[in-house]
């Protein structure tokens, strides 16, 4: 596969993984928790580096998952102690993120881990960092990691489909039926953390937020079916990656940045033109209604 094709595949996998998982958080009105976790995983990655002294995939995944779930836990704790939830999110993620950034500046230049990388990712280098097993080149590591995380996410969503749905729609009723609401909550937080860290290398900590939230919000404007919403969100993620890549090549700008901007483009399109919930259709319906009445 060519260099460009690998980048496209990586971007699409980021869009797909984040799109599907992030849509669940949009529905739970926890988008800003996704924002928080995608910042704080940086601390998990730096932490994993300090423990193992290398930038290996697996310790990074574990470190990020731990810090991600911890973020959710701290927010929950402050929330239940009476701090309003937006401020709770704000104070937790800025603290942990700041800690991560400060720790990075102690890492030194010899290691491929710096602040800019953490923010924007380096998708352009992905195709060269390949996985080799017994001399066989199996393609970029990032692709394998993203594929693996995507499968895990799909597995969990399939297994706990009805529990995720009910705890999202009506958590009180779910608790009444004896469904482990908190377990599902932290399971989702774990999935978000994994998706974030797998995408981290390619698009960076902050741009992954766009991939998590915007496709889900866009799909929310387009459909009224839960399952279709998840699938649509993943597809919009892929579409954004492809569009963003083309744009980045055309104007010679950051690939990850363009991909994130493309999610915004599709959101605006849905916001205006969505047949069900777009403002244009709403206006037309209003106009028809008033002309019928007169």
């Amino acid at each position: 596969m060519s260099y460009d094709a690998w980048i496209l595949l990586t971007g699409s996998l980021v869009g797909l993984t984040c799109g599907v998982t992030g849509a669940l958080l949009v529905l739970r009105k926890m988008s800003m928790l996704a924002d928080a976790i995608s910042h704080t995983v940086l601390l998990g990655i730096v932490g994993a580096f300090f423990v193992t002294q290398s930038l290996n995939g697996l310790p990074m995944l574990i470190g990020a998952a731990i810090v991600g779930v911890l973020t959710a836990f701290f927010v929950q704790m402050l929330d239940s102690s009476g701090v309003q939830s937006d401020a709770a999110i704000g104070v937790v993620f800025t603290s942990l993120f700041a800690l991560g950034v400060v720790l990075i500046s102690f890492v030194g230049d010899s290691v491929h881990l710096d602040v800019e990388h953490a923010l924007m990712g380096e998708i352009a280098f992905i195709p060269w960092d390949t996985l080799t097993v017994q001399g066989m080149n199996l393609g970029p590591k990032a692709v394998w990691m993203l594929g693996f995380v995507f499968l895990i996410n799909v597995l969990f969503i399939t297994l706990f489909y009805k529990e995720i749905k009910l705890t999202t729609f009506d958590p009180q009723f779910a608790a009444l039926l004896g469904i482990p609401v908190m377990f599902i909550h932290y399971l989702l937080m774990g999935m978000i953390s994994l998706s974030t860290v797998a995408s981290f290398d390619s698009v960076g900590a902050i741009l992954v937020v766009a991939m998590l939230i915007v496709p889900g919000a866009t799909a929310y404007l387009l459909t009224d079916r839960f399952l279709i919403l998840l699938i649509l969100s993943g597809l919009i993620g892929i579409l954004s990656a492809v569009t963003g890549f083309a744009f980045a090549v055309l104007f010679n700008v950051s690939i990850a940045g363009s991909m994130a901007c493309a999610t915004g483009l599709y959101f605006i399109l849905a916001f205006i033109f969505s047949p069900k919930h777009g403002i244009l259709m709403k206006q037309i319906r209003k106009y028809r209604l008033s002309s019928e009445q007169s």
Partner: peptide, 28 residues
């Protein structure tokens, strides 16, 4: 005001897309 998107998703979307735009400008 004009869609069913809730506050949290609206903030998150605007925040990330604007920031991404900033990054694109800087690389440009």
């Amino acid at each position: 005001k004009h869609s069913r998107i809730k506050t949290d998703a609206a903030i998150g979307s605007v925040l990330s897309v604007f920031f991404a735009l900033g990054i694109v400008f800087l690389t440009y």
